[in-house]
Amino acid sequence: MGEVLVITSGKGGVGKTTTTANIGTGLALMGKKVVMLDTDIGLRNLDVVLGLENRIVYDLVDVVWGNCRLKQALIKDKRFENMFLLPAAQTKDKTAITASQMRELCANLQEEFDYVIIDCPAGIEHGFKNAIAGAKQAIVVTTPEVSAVRDADRIIGLLEAAGLKAPKLIINRIRSRMVQAGDMMSIEDIMDILAVDLLGIVPDDDFIVVSTNRGEPAVLDERSLAGQAYRNISKRIMGEEIPLLNIQEKTGFWQKIRQAFGNR
């Protein structure tokens, strides 16, 4: 029996899809059999982030409606034998499926895979309710901004009300230089506010844009700091104890000289 995890945030644009793609790929990299589900019906994007957009024949709605068998809709990744995507339908909307259909689908996938990772749409309506219906655990993604943290708090409440106890938090797009200058909330500030456990932190990394351009998740790149962060998170999901990533930017030559003269 595999684990069913939903990646959610409430607010849009904080990195749910990127997080899903990197955690899914990270777990596959560690040898786990993984399927990722895009439940953002009508606005699918997980396929392009994973670079699998050209292989879609059937989608999640086709499976639920019985237009095809589950196996026919699963897209096998080009890099990993053990990684699959079930894409969202692009021409329907969130009401095309129900919560009980999602529960049944997740139960079926759970038999076959070590990890079922669900990419949740933004918002708290029908799409959100469907996405969390079949999940046993939830990961909440936020960024160090007032609006994102507020929405994360709301989502945590809704998840707990729906029986998804103890959701875990990922703080995305941390800019250490701004944190040091006091112009961005730190990890501690956010943890003071949100009553959940921290699963990981991800630095703001230009490489994420490059990796999305190419359809190659950053977790596969050894040099990317965000990639390292996602590898750590994947290991923590597998139960390993990994210390938090040090995301302080390396100081350059001139910065060191400045520091030597007493200015940080």
């Binding site: 007032v146 708090d153 006091g182 961005m184 730190s186 500030d189």
Partner: peptide, 15 residues
């Protein structure tokens, strides 16, 4: 006051 303190205080109140 650094702006992050403003952010934190506003958040706590709105929450």
């Amino acid at each position: 006051s650094p702006s992050k303190n403003v952010a934190k205080e506003r958040l706590q109140l709105v929450l």
